[in-house]
């Protein structure tokens, strides 16, 4: 079952008096439970593609369908609904809410889903257990290491059990040991919960973990490797 269908995707940005084309006719499909990555140098269009899949941006041409919803046709509210219910995001710089505790950060997506306290508490503790941070519940991001922050971000992305997690350079700010821990953790979650993970990266450490590698160059799919079928 395909959860992402991308057809002839073109994305152009205005630049000065002209335009810059970030994606030039991308065709891709992703199925449930994939652990795939968009690989390419800076400017290859991987983050742009990830943003469009995440309904944070819209295609200029072509179509992107995520979980049966056409991204280009969603209004702001529908796009927010899709992100709230079905998507998880992991960012390079963690993007944690600095004044909130670890617990509150992980709780945020559940608050948006209007779950009751008991449900929330159970789901948060489960998520923190996955990432091994149950002892840091009351800590705030400035009190955590980079690796711990990224683990909180993973817990936040996973807590609502989304169908799809989009991770943009998740290990770029981490050392090798932390990167491996994080990637191993995500791989485990992918296998245990059958959540689709889609990375945007040029980090070798991440690339080595991917089950499917899509190489982008100048806004086009240059090459694709399937290491392991999901």
């Amino acid at each position: 079952m395909e959860i992402i269908e991308i057809k002839n995707l073109v994305k152009r940005f205005p630049m000065g008096k002209g335009e810059f084309t970030a994606l030039r006719g991308v065709d891709l499909n992703f199925g449930k439970g994939e652990f795939a990555g968009l690989i390419g140098p800076s400017g290859s269009g991987k983050t742009t593609l990830l943003n469009i899949i995440g309904s944070l941006d819209v295609p200029t041409e072509g179509s992107v369908t995520v979980l049966g919803r056409a991204i280009g046709k969603l209004n702001q509210k529908e796009a927010a609904q899709l992100r709230k219910e079905s998507l998880g995001f992991i960012f390079q710089s963690y993007n944690l809410l600095q004044v909130h505790t670890v617990y509150e950060n992980v709780e945020f997506p559940l608050l948006l889903l209007k779950l009751n306290v008991t449900e929330r508490k159970k789901m948060i503790m489960d998520a923190l257990e996955w990432v091994g941070l149950t002892d840091k519940v009351q800590s705030k991001p400035p009190q955590l290491s980079g690796g711990e922050c990224q683990r909180v971000a993973i817990a936040r992305a996973m807590v609502k059990r989304p169908s799809l997690v989009l991770a943009d350079e998740p290990t770029a700010n981490l050392d090798a040991a932390n990167s491996h821990n994080i990637l191993k953790m995500m791989e485990n979650l992918n296998q245990e919960l059958n959540t689709t993970f889609l990375f945007a990266t040029h980090d070798e450490k991440v690339i080595n973990y991917l089950h499917r590698k899509i190489f982008l160059l100048d806004g086009k799919v240059d090459n694709e490797e399937i290491i392991r079928n999901h």
């Binding site: 927010a80 992100r83 709230k84 219910e85 960012f91 993007n95 809410l97």
Partner: peptide
């Protein structure tokens, strides 16, 4: 700004 972007990514509309 990052926080605002994060709210949107997590499911808030900009109006919210």
């Amino acid at each position: 700004q990052k926080e605002i972007g994060t709210y949107v990514a997590l499911g808030y509309t900009r109006r919210e």
